[in-house]
């Protein structure tokens, strides 16, 4: 779920930074009103360290050949409440981005939104807390944890698809991209839900005050206006919607486009039916169906560009080597 910088364009990265900054600002303002903030801070930091460690463990998803890791947003929200959980996941993502290259610096806003704002400020107050407010029984805790984790991961994955498509870095049609992302995150969400439920159940049995403090009606979201958050989300919706409509206007419908790309203008020869089918399949699977440029456009300019790039790469490597050698020479003991 951690998005790398390469997957986002600068405008989309900037818009997501703005949205997450708004949500974080609201969370900071909200939590600063808490009388026992000093007591909560070590819990928040340690929960963050715990989620950090949990995200290092990848589990394989049977039958898919892929793996996933916990998002941790719902666990944090269950333990700490929405606003503190958002701040904690933001801290975790910042440390991961800086020290582990897990998620990019420019994509930090998008990652905080997908893995923090959605579970902590949308799913937790709208799904998790209302169900548990009727009474935190073991069964209800399991049901809520699984439901909330699945929904938050599905929404997060959906946002990843939107952000990547708006950035224009993948040519996958929207539907196909969605059909790849959502099912895999359904499986991850189920595992995350089970893990979250198991941990929260233990905490409820041993330290119930930790959980009940967060689901009481007096806590945070009811006492603070949701207006700024709603405005931030509305601005984001307009930005994302505008980006999507631009994308939609410049390309044909995904399915039409794919069909056009695969079949092109080539008429299949009407020979042996088996051979024709085989040729069609072969053509559809070939990475380069026509071994030449279409009407020879743009070869010259690209070739000069590449030559320039090769020279620059060589120059950069030489400079790097020269500096390293010079430093070694200088640091060598003088005879």
């Amino acid at each position: 779920m951690h998005m790398a910088d390469a997957l986002l364009s600068a405008p989309v990265g900037g818009a997501m930074y703005a949205a997450s900054a708004g949500a974080l600002g609201w969370a900071v303002k909200n939590i600063e009103k808490e009388p026992q903030l000093d007591r909560k801070l070590p819990l928040m930091a340690m929960s963050g360290a715990f989620v950090f460690a949990a995200q290092m463990i990848n589990f394989s998803i049977p039958g898919t050949g892929s793996s996933g890791h916990l998002g941790g947003g719902m666990l944090l929200a269950g333990l700490l409440g929405g606003a503190p959980a958002l701040l904690t996941i933001a801290a975790v993502l910042t440390v991961q981005c800086l020290f582990f290259a897990d998620g990019g610096l420019l994509a930090l806003g998008a990652n905080i939104f997908n893995m923090g704002v959605i579970p902590c400020l949308l799913v937790w107050p709208l799904i998790f807390r209302p169900i548990l407010r009727k009474g935190a029984t073991k069964g209800r805790l399991w049901l809520t944890s699984i439901l909330a984790s699945v929904i938050s991961l599905q929404l997060g994955a959906f946002c990843v698809v939107l952000e990547t498509l708006c950035s224009g870095v993948t040519e996958l049609p929207f539907g196909l991209f969605l059909s790849l992302m959502q099912p895999i995150h359904l499986a991850i969400g189920l595992v995350e839900g089970i893990v979250t439920a198991a941990i929260l159940t233990y905490v409820m049995q041993t330290r119930p005050e930790l959980l009940t403090a967060n689901i009481s009606p007096q806590s945070e979201l009811t006492s603070v206006s949701l207006k700024p958050l709603a405005i931030a989300l509305a601005i984001l919706a307009v930005l994302v919607g505008g980006g999507l409509s631009l994308l939609a206007s410049s390309y044909p419908d995904g399915l039409e486009w794919s069909i056009q790309r695969i079949t092109g203008t080539t008429d299949l020869e009407r020979g042996d039916a088996v051979h024709s089918q085989a040729a069609a399949v072969q053509k559809s699977l070939a990475i380069l169906p026509d071994y030449d440029y279409p009407s020879g456009q743009g070869q010259g300019t690209t070739a000069s560009g590449l030559l320039g790039a090769a020279i620059t790469c060589a120059l950069a490597a030489l400079i790097g080597l020269a500096i390293s050698c010079l430093k070694k020479f200088r640091s060598a003991p003088q005879q």
């Binding site: 790398a4 870095v169 993948t170 040519e171 196909l176 070939a286 990475i287 440029y293």
Partner: peptide, 27 residues
């Protein structure tokens, strides 16, 4: 450490290889 960022980028970009097959460069 930088290589850790590669898998997801490759996952998103690999589809482009199969979808956009217009020849663009000859080396």
């Amino acid at each position: 450490r930088a290589a850790l960022a590669l898998p997801f980028a490759l996952l998103a970009g690999i589809s482009n290889v199969f979808i956009n097959r217009t020849p663009a460069l000859r080396i």
